[in-house]
Structures are given as structure tokens and as C-alpha cells.
């Protein structure tokens, strides 16, 4: 019974994610694109919850939907760009599309080959006694992967300072 519910949930969320991201890249109005992107974020967050990664799901909504996409909307509304007419399919777009599809298939083949995707089943993760998702995440992040984590945060700090320097040039 539970299995069936999980599967129905997965297919609904997965199809929503794929369809809304397709809408996102095909809308001519950038604000509409941003709103479809919002729906994609929510669907992906739902899939994270199904994988017992509720921390990542909450952070996904908070950071991507709540902060980054709001900033996009902010910029788009201030600039109010007119439609670029990219639907007409010039040569460059077709070429870009072909390259993207080839790269995507390449990534898919690599993933299938290395067994990174170990199982297609949606399963519960068995955390040790007294461990929640957040605790497990923090433990791994601050012991095993402390160096990549710190490197990423320094990178973000550099980007932030760079943005301030560029904005305050004059």
C-alpha cells in the first residue's frame, strides 16, 4: 500500500518537474519562465522528501525558491526585457540544442556505466539510532567533507566581495 502511494507520488512529482522545466525554457516572457522554475523547485523538493532528505528539501525551497529566484524576478522586473524571439530557431540555437542533447546522453551513459545510480527503488534510508537527517548531514559535512565545504564557502565569499567591488567602482 505504502509502496503504491510512494510510486504515485514519485511519478506525479517527476512529471511535474520535467514538464515545468520544459515550460520554463520555452516561455517567451522571462517572468513566466521564472514562475515555471518555481514549480520545478517545488517538485524537486518533493522528490527529496520522498528520499528521506527533508533537510535538503527545506533548504532547496528556502535558498533557491525563496532567495535566488526572488532576486531573478527582481532583476527581470527592473529591466523588463522584451521578447527576444528565440522561438524562430536560428542556426545557433539548433547547433546548441544538438550539442546539449549529445552531452546529456553522454552524462546518462556514464552514470549508467559507473553504477552511481544503484537502485531505481525509492527507499527509506536507515539512519542509526538517535540520528536525524539534519544530524547525519552535518556530521558528514563537517568531518569527511570539511575541505570541499570550506573551499566552496571561500569561493562564495570571494564572489560576494567581487560583486561589492564591481558595484562600488566609481
Amino acid at each position: 500500500m505504502n509502496e503504491i502511494f510512494m510510486n504515485i507520488g514519485f511519478w506525479v512529482l517527476g512529471i511535474t518537474a520535467v514538464v515545468s522545466s520544459l515550460f520554463m525554457v520555452t516561455r517567451e516572457n522571462p517572468v513566466h519562465s521564472a514562475l515555471w522554475m518555481l514549480l520545478t523547485f517545488f517538485a524537486v523538493a518533493g522528490i527529496f522528501i520522498q528520499l528521506d532528505a527533508e533537510y535538503i528539501a527545506a533548504i532547496q525551497v528556502m535558498v533557491y525558491a525563496g532567495a535566488i529566484l526572488v532576486l531573478y524576478m527582481f532583476v527581470v522586473m527592473l529591466l523588463n526585457p522584451k521578447s527576444t524571439g528565440f522561438i524562430k530557431m536560428p542556426f545557433k540555437v539548433v547547433l546548441g540544442g544538438v550539442v546539449a542533447v549529445v552531452l546529456f546522453v553522454q552524462i546518462l551513459m556514464t552514470l549508467m556505466g559507473t553504477g552511481v545510480i544503484k537502485s531505481t527503488q525509492l527507499g527509506n534510508i536507515n539512519y542509526p539510532e538517535g540520528f536525524t537527517n539534519v544530524k547525519a548531514f552535518g556530521t558528514v559535512m563537517f568531518t569527511q567533507y570539511i575541505v570541499p565545504f570550506e573551499v566552496a564557502s571561500v569561493l562564495l565569499l570571494v564572489a560576494m566581495i567581487g560583486a561589492i567591488v564591481i558595484a562600488k567602482k566609481d
Binding site: L38, A58, M62, A65, M73, T132
Partner: peptide, 25 residues
């Protein structure tokens, strides 16, 4: 009663701003 209840509330309150942005635009 979920483990990340606090983050859930924060995430929802950060999404609430879309109503305002979208209606304004």
C-alpha cells in the same frame, strides 16, 4: 511533527513573497 519543522516554516515564509511580487508585476 517533522524533524525540520523550523526550516519548513522558514521556507514557506520565504515563498510567501511571491504572492506580492507576482501581483505587483
Amino acid at each position: 511533527n517533522i524533524n525540520v519543522g523550523l526550516l519548513y516554516v522558514l521556507a514557506l515564509s520565504s515563498v510567501g513573497v511571491y504572492g506580492i511580487i507576482m501581483s505587483g508585476w
